[in-house]
Design a protein around this nucleic acid. Sequence first.
DNA 1: TTTACCCTCATACTTTAGGGTGATTTTGTT
DNA 2: AACAAAATCACCCTAAAGTATGAGGGTAAA
Lengths: 157, 157
Amino acid sequence: MIFQGFRKNKTIWLYGVSLAILLFLLKWLELRFVIYDHAFEIYAGAIAVLFTSLGIWLAIKLTRPKVKTVIIEKEIYRDPSIPFVPNGKALDQLGMSKRELEVLKLMAEGHTNQGIAEALFVSLNTIKTHGSRIFEKLDVKSRTQAIDKAKKLGLIA
Amino acid sequence: MIFQGFRKNKTIWLYGVSLAILLFLLKWLELRFVIYDHAFEIYAGAIAVLFTSLGIWLAIKLTRPKVKTVIIEKEIYRDPSIPFVPNGKALDQLGMSKRELEVLKLMAEGHTNQGIAEALFVSLNTIKTHGSRIFEKLDVKSRTQAIDKAKKLGLIA
DNA sequence: TTTACCCTCATACTTTAGGGTGATTTTGTT
DNA sequence: AACAAAATCACCCTAAAGTATGAGGGTAAA
């Protein structure tokens, strides 16, 4: 258990031990450099460099850089010459209003309710109300279900 | 070569510059603390902690770039009669695991986390963990954003 | 052997979503 | 003008999602 703890927290343990050694060295150097007034700068610089080196070493250990910028060519599965047109028949049958469709589209794009409210210049409560109405009409219980169903019905792209 | 060196060791170079600034500050503070003999230990300890902290902070800050996905949209026509095949290239580049893709698919179908957990015979906590990982890799903050992006990238149908 | 990653799980907490109830205002139709 | 539907808004409450932190086991690669 304690050995496991050492395995997992090796860096921290090594840092602790290193710090102890450095502090000991610091104390020891302190006794020597107090004698020489002119050596003050050298001493201060020495501890700065020492601790800086330790900081760098530790930071490199702690933070492995990860590959992060990913450029991906993506294929859109749609013929560009044919713009998406909502399934008007389904919209009529469901009784989905223009505003509700608008809200649904923004939901599908991943916006929060607050975000949608701000985009449409209305209150958060309004969006929640629209949401409930949308779910009712689509007979679903959540936005992800609504989005899934709406795409299948051809209400949104 | 030297430029490459800079690129590779960005943290170290930036830290070096920061160190120069700190050393200047050190010199300036030096003139003040020389007056007080009893402040010596405090001063030394202060610079040690300061330099170590700065090193750690800088390195962590600069070696944790955010996941950034740049999407270049290339519209092509897809024949609906051809069954959907996930974009393996994008999956590899994003580092998306099989399990994560599995969870993402079930999310897109509108399942709750608990529902997904039950479907995959794991704990709710596990699904939450996978969720976080998926969001991280897609650089999104919610499941709806993740789903939207995954569809655009061709990761899911 | 060590390291990195995936998978799994837990806990505590915060944020967001969603249900229920009620109300008012606006808009469109007859 | 009357009426119905749509749009808007509020408040209270619960459920679900999402974050942060930590842990452990297994596997493959260095």
